[in-house]
Nucleic acid binder design. Sequence first.
DNA 1: GCCAACGTTGGC
DNA 2: GCCAACGTTGGC
Length: 135
Amino acid sequence: MNYWLIKSEPSTYSIDNLKAEKQTFWSGVRNYAARNNMQAMKKGDICLFYHSVTDPAVVGLAKVVKESYQDPTTDEPAWVVVDVQFMKKFKTPVTLPQIKQDKKLANMDLLRLSRLSVQSVKKDEYEHILKLAGE
DNA sequence: GCCAACGTTGGC
DNA sequence: GCCAACGTTGGC
């Protein structure tokens, strides 16, 4: 079981969109590092759902329900998507300033590689974020 | 709206 | 294969 963080601008696709839709394919990734992470995702892995730009914060959880396959929004074989299912929306989002202040989370890719849209998260980082969210 | 970081492109 | 120019992302 692995943990990931997937980013979205809430004005484009928010956790509420996912909640309403229940499930979606995660498309639009056009970066090789992010693509490689998606290809490494396994069914049952858990993704932290992160809102970027507007009130940046981890806002909930999604589960990988289908492993990577050709991105249906492009013919280019380089790009893939995964299917993710809504799990939960945090009552208390874990904000970026909170993550920055937390020594345990200081090495997260989120802070080091702020532009990477699909990142791997360590188990202890994941568990710590859940704790901060009060889950 | 600005700007830093960084990935990608293209000239050589 | 290097590196400058450029475009995009995302924090503030």
